[in-house]
């Protein structure tokens, strides 16, 4: 029940969507995509969290607990955290591809304005 985390993820996603829809600079548009990716990571890690849970790592357990007690106790969901880990790595690769496309557009059309690129295509 961490509603505030979900609401913040939705707000960050809306900020990224607003950037993609209204800004004209191509690099700013890619920045909006990065904001949407960050909202996705926040939503996944918030879904994995349970009340009063700790990290799903058995190394160095808290005082007074053995690793078995920690594994049977209240830990966060490791599956969603691994999804989030994969999403981060894929996200940086996708951002690199987008930025290389933006650099090629800037070399070809001599501009970074999305509207001018659309006009120049005819």
């Amino acid at each position: 029940m961490i509603v505030a985390n979900y609401l913040t993820a939705a707000a960050v996603f809306c900020a990224g969507l607003y950037t993609v829809l209204t800004r004209r600079n191509l690099i700013k548009i890619v920045m909006g995509l990065s904001l949407m990716e960050a909202a996705t990571y926040l939503l996944m890690v918030s879904l994995a969290y349970r009340a009063d849970s700790t990290a799903p790592v058995l190394l160095n357990p808290p005082r007074g607990q053995s690793p078995q007690q920690l594994a049977e106790g209240n830990v966060a969901d490791p599956v969603l955290q691994n999804f989030c880990l994969t999403a981060i790595v894929i996200g940086v690769a996708v951002t690199a591809v987008f930025l290389s496309v933006v650099v090629r557009i800037a070399q070809h059309y001599r501009t970074l304005d999305a509207d001018q690129v659309r006009e120049l295509r005819g």
């Binding site: 985390n5 690099i27 890619v30 920045m31 990065s34 960050a38 990571y41 890690v45 918030s46 994995a48 969290y49 849970s53 700790t54 990290a55 799903p56 790592v57 830990v75 966060a76 955290q81 989030c84 880990l85 981060i88 790595v89 996200g91 940086v92 951002t95 690199a96 930025l99 290389s100 933006v102 650099v103």
Partner: peptide, 27 residues
């Protein structure tokens, strides 16, 4: 804080360093 130190590792490297360096090189 949410109990995901491995995700925090990759986010510290990717989100705080690698992604801004990519943007700066593109700019």
């Amino acid at each position: 804080i949410l109990g995901a130190p491995d995700v925090a590792h990759s986010e510290a490297v990717v989100g705080a360093i690698a992604l801004p360096v990519l943007y700066l090189v593109a700019i």
